[in-house]
Design a protein around this nucleic acid. Structure first.
Length: 125
DNA sequence: CGGCTGACGACCT
DNA sequence: GAGGTCGCCAGCC
């Protein structure tokens, strides 16, 4: 689980700046898989859950590396801190992500922003 | 080998 | 409250 590797990353905080290791993807995937259907989380929350607040960008990088075959990782439940659907470079929100969210009962407006985002945001202990 | 980019976020003007 | 800046780190040019 991610909790086990979390220690390793936390130790990286104290020492030099080695942060992202081999298991980083797996940890990110674990956190994403922990998000129940109908709820969403943010890149920053995942990063924080891994014990590294500032690696939200690398979380995005890890999710971008998910192969299309990997349908067991609900990457579409991950949005940015504003509750907007991730934009993949072309500047337009992913219609696929919007459809996947809609299939779970999550409303997304025209701007690509999740309706009732704070209410749907996953609560972490 | 140096510099820029990117599915981001917190902090400072 | 809105907008700019810095940090973070793996890939790519």
């Amino acid at each position: 689980m991610a909790a086990q590797r979390r220690t390793r990353y936390n130790s990286a905080l104290h020492g030099p700046h080695r942060v992202v290791g081999e298991g980083f993807h797996e940890d990110v995937f674990s956190e994403v898989c922990a998000v129940p259907a109908g709820q969403v989380t943010t890149y920053g929350d995942i990063a924080a859950a891994l014990g590294l607040r500032s690696v939200a960008r690398q979380v995005g990088w890890a999710l971008a590396a998910i192969p299309e075959d990997r349908d067991d990782v609900p990457w579409h439940r991950v949005v940015n801190a504003k509750g907007e659907i991730a934009r993949r470079g072309d500047g337009l929100p992913s219609d696929e992500q919007r459809a996947l969210l809609a299939a779970e009962g999550i409303e997304v407006n025209e701007a690509g922003c999740i309706v009732e985002f704070s209410a749907r945001r996953m609560q972490r202990p």
